[in-house]
């Protein structure tokens, strides 16, 4: 198989008349953590949401170019976004568990795909919660509401919920920006464990976080991909002056 989860070619994106992304070309490697950094409004979240076509929820959006996921162009009109999203999980900026029990949250994806077998669902929920490193904390209260957990726990439930779909990519949109430092640390540790099984693409505001968790880093500015390289190189010896300015805190 390919060694890339995504191959993005000449991606342009408009919100109505406003162009938000310009000619993005990017190959995102499998089973690695790729961080996307850049100042607010640079298009990094838009790019991430383009990868599972969630960006289409915004009225008036137009996407051009090619986004190949495992070799298939997901912008092809015959490609069902629902199918894509079961293979490409997403974790959002604010923990967003459903107002349902922990069990129901994690089993949601499987249930909407028509899995009804109880023992199968139970096994899946347990496996997913274990992978999201939250099983020990919640195993005795799977039937209590997920909204009663702490923010950090909720976010790991959301990660477990995404994992339960058995995806091969997990997109994370600033997953720790609403969490306290200790919860943030636990999520970062979790990301390290998860990359064994999944390709992870994480948008972050926090450059330390990008340097801690990622293998590759992409720097976006004003809707353009300025630089995409190994994280070590981006943070020690960036090839572009603008990257260097951003990383050293000269703007943004």
């Amino acid at each position: 198989m390919d060694k890339y989860s995504y191959e993005v070619e000449n991606m342009n994106l408009w919100y109505g008349e406003h162009q938000a992304l310009y000619e993005i070309n990017m190959k995102i490697p499998k089973n690695k953590v790729t961080a996307i950094i850049g100042p607010s409004g640079c298009g990094k979240s838009t790019f991430l949401k383009g990868l599972n076509r969630m960006v289409e929820m915004v009225p008036g959006v137009k996407v051009a170019g090619k986004i190949k996921y495992n070799g298939e162009d997901i912008l092809n009109p015959n490609y069902h976004p629902e199918e894509l999203r079961t293979k490409v999980g997403m974790v959002f900026q604010h923990p967003n568990p459903f107002p349902k029990s922990i069990y129901e949250n994690v089993a949601f994806g499987a249930k909407i795909q028509g899995i009804r077998n109880k023992s199968k669902l139970e096994g899946l929920v347990e496996k997913s919660l274990k992978r999201a490193a939250i099983w020990d904390e919640v195993k005795d209260r799977l039937n209590t509401s997920a909204t009663g957990l702490s923010g950090g726990q909720q976010q790991r439930i959301c990660i477990a919920r995404a994992i339960a779909n058995e995806p091969d990519v997990i997109l994370m949109d600033e997953p720790t920006s609403a969490l306290d430092p200790i919860s943030t640390l636990r999520v970062e540790e979790l990301i390290q464990q998860l990359k064994e099984h999944y390709t992870i693409i994480i948008v972050t505001h926090n450059m330390q976080q990008a340097s801690r968790v990622s293998d590759k880093t992409a720097f976006f500015l004003n809707g353009e991909l300025v630089e995409f390289d190994d994280t070590d190189r981006i943070f020690s010896n960036p090839g572009d002056k603008r990257t260097e300015d951003y990383i050293s805190g000269r703007f943004g």
């Binding site: 599972n52 929820m57 894509l84 459903f98």
Partner: peptide
């Protein structure tokens, strides 16, 4: 109903109808 949890449902591959009757109506 917060848009967050609708996004969550769509993000897990739910269709619009599934989102309506599995998430929005129960919530």
């Amino acid at each position: 109903i917060p848009i967050d949890i609708k996004d969550a449902a769509y993000g897990l591959g739910a269709t619009r109808w599934q989102t309506i009757y599995k998430v929005i109506i129960p919530a």
